[in-house]
């Protein structure tokens, strides 16, 4: 279960960022913002790396004391970042991958919505509910 989910446009500004409300949200802003460095590094590395390293899933970006940050980039250079609690060791890589898949599917639907202009903030309720489904429920 994620504590923070963010969608970042290819110009590196946030289209959507949502975190567990109990925490200081700004902290997640910072975390996601700094993780972009790593994401960019990985993305540029893909071009130079071997041909088989072409997954959309970027894996663990970097661990901090309390959190683990995972990244995913689509072919349209839109990035998804999920932050999970470090203490939550039960989460396996597969689960993270599936969370990203769901996000990607939902994002594709948003993109195909004619009322959505690419580049705007995402306000789709369907997207919201998909994200809520994968976030830690606030008690």
């Amino acid at each position: 279960m994620a504590v923070c989910v963010a969608v970042i446009a290819k110009e590196n500004y946030p289209l959507y960022i949502r975190s567990v409300p109990t925490q200081n949200e700004l902290k997640f802003h910072y975390t996601v913002h700094t993780s972009l460095d790593v994401v960019e590094e990985k993305v540029s590395a893909v071009g130079k790396a071997l041909a088989d390293q072409r997954e959309l899933y970027l894996g663990l970006l970097y661990p901090t004391e309390d959190y683990k940050v995972y990244g995913y980039v689509t072919n349209s250079k839109v990035k998804f970042v999920i932050v999970v609690d470090s203490s939550n060791t039960s989460l396996r890589d597969n689960e993270i991958r599936s969370m990203f898949r769901k996000l990607h599917n939902s994002f594709t639907d948003v993109m195909c919505n004619p009322f959505y202009n690419p580049g705007d903030a995402i306000q789709s309720r369907a997207f919201d509910s998909v994200v809520s489904g994968m976030m830690v429920q606030a008690c």
Binding site: V46, R54, E55, L56, V73, T74, N75, S76, H104, N105, F107, T108, M111, C112, N113, P114, P118
Partner: peptide
């Protein structure tokens, strides 16, 4: 824009 998002959902990066 919308179509390409859909079609590249499952393909690896270019």
């Amino acid at each position: 824009q919308g179509l390409i998002e859909k079609f590249t959902k499952d393909s690896p990066s270019f």
